[in-house]
Nucleic acid binder design. Sequence first.
DNA 1: CTGTTAGCGCTTTCAC
DNA 2: GTGAAAGCGCTAACAG
Lengths: 336, 336
Amino acid sequence: MTKKNAPTMKDVAREAGVALGTVSKVINGIPVSEEYRSRVLDAIRTLHYEVNTYARGLKTQKTNLIALIIPNTINPFFASFADYIEGALYQRGLKLLLCCADGIPEKEIAYLNLATQNKVDGIVALTYSDVGKYIAKDIPMVVFDRFFDNHIIPRVASDNFAGGCMAVEKLLELGCTHPVYIRFHSVFPGESDKRMDGYLHACKKHGLEPDYLNMEDCPEMLDYMRDFLERHKRADGSLTFDGVFAHTDYHGYHFLRLLRGQGYRVPEDVQIIGFDGIRQFGGEQEDLFVSSICQPVKQLAEKCVEILVAPDRSMVPSLTLLPVSYQYGGTTKREG
Amino acid sequence: MTKKNAPTMKDVAREAGVALGTVSKVINGIPVSEEYRSRVLDAIRTLHYEVNTYARGLKTQKTNLIALIIPNTINPFFASFADYIEGALYQRGLKLLLCCADGIPEKEIAYLNLATQNKVDGIVALTYSDVGKYIAKDIPMVVFDRFFDNHIIPRVASDNFAGGCMAVEKLLELGCTHPVYIRFHSVFPGESDKRMDGYLHACKKHGLEPDYLNMEDCPEMLDYMRDFLERHKRADGSLTFDGVFAHTDYHGYHFLRLLRGQGYRVPEDVQIIGFDGIRQFGGEQEDLFVSSICQPVKQLAEKCVEILVAPDRSMVPSLTLLPVSYQYGGTTKREG
DNA sequence: CTGTTAGCGCTTTCAC
DNA sequence: GTGAAAGCGCTAACAG
């Protein structure tokens, strides 16, 4: 039980000496005589009146609440995405219901159900479950980075394919002749799978033999990396590759440490490019963990919200891909 | 306008052939005959009924919504705090309204006002403004890490004083003889100011002359660090200190890079201990940026929520300090 | 234990 | 223009 004594519209009406409906009109910007309008406004001020969201929500079936469903807020990528979503929402007078589902299907579904009825006005989801079937078709929704059978829900993502190509092109440009790809993917299909397609495409284009580690993400990640490294050592200890495109900065960073731990020099012997553009301590001015194909997180968030609140839902593209960009992060050679 | 056709309690009552009130009772766990209860439950299932939060909120003046006001979600410390708050809330059937105020007083106040009326059931705040005066006294609130004139609001924080002492003690234990403190503080007073008190206390206790850099946080941070370093060089280039307690991991990490950049060896020549316990990429299994006095973020979040929902608000302590702990992070010598 | 009923505070016709 | 009145879906008395 919160404030029981908050002033209501009725109080404002009495204070202003007008009818209840008039107060409502003033608040909702419906034409009212200047005289009445200011009297109402005065009353609102003296009473410190604020409309009750719940009464309004009950009446209008609108809440101004948008649910953001992401795995967590610990991962810096999700964390900054959440931050930018909040900013975009705030600008539009919307509020953010943060739902960290931890990749747990039950929790995702619970949060989805919460939204299924009239609890939120829209959903931005980065989920693992195939949310399509759990959600009412009539609540606005946009999916980030994933795709589902249900192709009705608009999707937003980075141009992962172009990013994959870009990573390879960049490595070649910086002098690599044998770039490998190290991928640890989620069991759930998503746009990020296209990074591999981009890698393969670029290899083909440049007449290179693709060479990659392609595993499901798992706790034994480091073992697989170590194993991959062993398999690529020549008798003299030198490596058969000189460039690494890592599926994410996270993986790139761990591979970097592995290499340096074994005495290989980065970027002299091997250059590494990751993906995401995650910065140390999250600060925009801070260094990257590794050179990286950066996702435009802020723009992605902005686009998700823009699509979510689009007045004409029939006009929104089913897929929106935003461009990525390469940034130096210490694990590649400086450009000529 | 969301779902206009969602089933209501009335529909469930009709479907189950019982009265409206009975449905309400089943939903709210009020005793009802087994027969009726299951009929209602069945009806709920077939209709996919879910209670309308707004109608309920209007009636009960409860929303099950808790606002978390933090500067942002980019800073890994805030990000993990938010994550754990979400978890603690979810367990209790509460939802999280995420408010990133960016340290902008207007935004903080806007969010606080939002909560002032009957929009949320409680607030967890880590704000810069003195929120005390903007908030209705009758809405449950707990402040993390800050303190205000208004001492009525319960506060939760890490034991920063003990942490400051611990950092010094640890450095001494690991062989340091001259530990300095590097502090870049917020303009707003908070519990973290006690880290300095702890440092001074420990120095005194061990008969050491305190030696520190004490600045307001600013973009020129690196310049001040560089300058501090210069001032502590002997003619032969060696340093007059051999241990550094940094106000946060962030500052410790930057000082570490500065030292290494100038050829000093860490932890051989200088040992560094930061504060917070921030991990690379946020993962609990990941490495720290520097050896650190770690804040128990999860426990802090849990405690905030626990206090917020405490049935008897008159029983909650006005200040709750949780213990910190030292963890090795590569910038100190391994313990004997 | 069950059904009926009076609102919670607001928006929105609909007469005036 | 303005005011009166009918609910939105639910909970919590209160009778039965």
